[in-house]
Design a protein around this nucleic acid. Structure first.
Lengths: 341, 341
DNA sequence: ATGAAAGCGCTAACAA
DNA sequence: TTGTTAGCGCTTTCAT
């Protein structure tokens, strides 16, 4: 259907190697360059990157497996890195595994069959088993947000412990002592860190974390709703609430509205999200923001240096990058109603 | 690096054709099937779809070009269709063109070079020029949300006129007469339709649309903020506001909050978005919801029938699908403060 | 059912 | 600089 370099060769009377050389930026006699360009235009020739890929063993594609595309954090990161990848000629194949381990495994295998040059993964399964095949094939792996042991790969993380700690300290400074949290139950890196930050902040104020104030929810809107309801049932004295995840933040807000609890009058609130989201609320939400754009760019930069860098860059030992979060100070943290306990 | 069918052939003592036949579901003697499967496991063989693609001239990839991934409407549709495509073995390559015509053109060419089997586009440029190459290569094109003339392709749309009309009728029923709208200025299909719905609803109530109540904003958060500010400046008597786009809805809410205008006491409000978003607000927002999941599934189904359907399905004349929107009835539409004009 | 061989569109080594 | 040729990993006739 479409024209091939053979067609160009025939039309120009030149050999294949000359055309190929031209296409790859090699030196071609001026006279021939003109001829080739005319033929390309004439035949609407566009290079076939699939054929090139089979020959060079480089597909110029990057695979990405994430738990939910429908998740601002993921979508923002992808937007940012896809841009960088495309600029360098790489297409991005994104698989949304719906936070399902089996689907994640399948997606990874699927992308391997597509021979992606590198893989970016925000892993649900942290055994690393499904990524081994990329490791043995020498294809770079970049992890986002979650660590995996025994796997040679770079990682891009957020200082979740500090993020949570700072938010809780804000509450404590205002006089709150009964601070609820809906934590992520999974044994993954950011989940543990966030809970750790919560506990550390409390201990700095000489408080021991209370089990009943810590409740668990999967990182979905539904998880946020159910988590809040559970917390509300068990802790009538809770004066502040922290939600360390964007989707659950949305869920908790839904549940809080359903119960008609006024924020921050009856309950102070801090969650995860971005600034625009925070400002759309009245009063504006106090939210921890994640530098998604930076994360995406760092993922791309790291991947590209593994793929196209100098030998020294390629062989550099695995490196972890860690970004600090921001805090958008809205108006949802007030003093508790009864400071006199 | 990775094993090839040659390795399998050597290990089993069989010919290439037999292995290939096995991989493609052909008949293989039981004894050989066992041998092949053992070798595959032994060598960690995974089929190389790039090589297969160059041979079959089918890359098993679908290209998608959208104006913004960071846009719930787009992200939800992609999530839904990517799922369907992957189930059938197709990977999805998404390019976010940042609502930039030049970048869209480049993305389309980029994906053509990757030889995607079909292209899904929510076009920024509605000239259709950039899609012609897919048309002549016989690769199916599916348009989302916006029409293009003189292009043989299917389209999946939303009944925007009705959506807008219904929202405006809600306002009118409550007694509102000064209803503002922040419209999309572009001359594209859904933009025009939404404005048309606005006007139709007013005329049904014997009202002539007032120019000063119609303001324009590009479909971004910033556009929503600026649009509202302009409207607010020019129309102090406005009692209701309709925003026919999700991003601008967020922007308008931000601007409204900044001015401290209480909703719905001083201003009734309706916008675009999804139910979870609506319920997170207090009071819950009245929003028009779009059936993104259905849209995504329809895109995939239509594409797959063009790609793998019977000859009759492949040659069926272009078809437009149109979905109805929903209306989530929140509590942001109240009676205007001064019904007695 | 299986094997031999050609070829998809391209790159790369070698010669000229 | 350019042309010839081989071959990337696979599928696909065509024999057998």
């Amino acid at each position: 259907m479409s024209a091939t370099i053979k067609d160009i060769a025939r039309e120009t009377g030149l050999g294949l190697a000359t055309i190929s050389s031209y296409l790859n930026g090699g030196n071609v006699r001026e006279k021939n360059r003109v001829k080739i360009e005319a033929a390309i235009k004439d035949l609407h020739y566009e290079i076939n990157e699939v054929a090139r890929a089979v020959r060079t063993n480089r597909s110029m594609t990057i695979g990405v497996v994430i738990p939910e595309l429908n998740n601002t954090f993921c979508a923002e990161i992808i937007t940012s890195m896809e841009d960088e990848f495309r600029k360098k000629g790489y297409a991005t194949m994104v698989c949304d595994c719906r936070t399902d381990k089996a689907l994640e495994k399948e997606s990874l295998a699927f992308l391997y069959r597509k021979r992606v040059d590198g893989i970016v993964n925000m892993p649900v399964d942290t055994s690393g088993q499904n990524l081994k095949i990329f490791e043995s094939a020498g294809r770079p792996i970049i992890l986002i947000d979650r660590k995996i042991d025994n796997l040679t790969c770079d990682g891009i993380f957020v200082d979740n412990k500090n993020a949570a700690k700072n938010a809780i300290l804000k509450f404590l400074e205002k006089g709150h002592r009964k601070i609820g949290i809906i934590a992520d139950p999974s044994n993954i890196y950011p989940a543990r860190s966030r809970l750790l930050g919560y506990k550390e902040a409390l201990r700095e104020y000489g408080l021991e974390p209370e089990k009943r104030l810590i409740c668990y929810g999967d990182c979905t809107i539904r998880g946020g709703i159910e988590g809040f309801n559970e917390l509300y049932r068990n802790c009538e004295d809770m004066t502040a609430l922290f939600i360390p995840n964007h989707e659950m933040t949305l869920g908790a807000l839904i549940a809080i509205n359903e119960k008609g609890i006024p924020i921050p009058k009856k309950l102070s609130f801090a969650g995860f999200g971005n600034e625009d989201f925070a400002k759309a609320f009245s009063p504006a939400l106090t939210l921890i923001t994640q530098p998604t754009d930076k994360i995406g760019k760092q993922v791309a930069e790291t991947m590209l240096s593994r793929l196209e860098g100098t030998d020294e860059e390629k062989d550099r030992p695995p490196h972890d990058f860690c970004f600090q979060t921001g805090l958008f100070a809205g108006r949802t943290i007030a003093e508790p109603e009864n400071t006199a306990v």
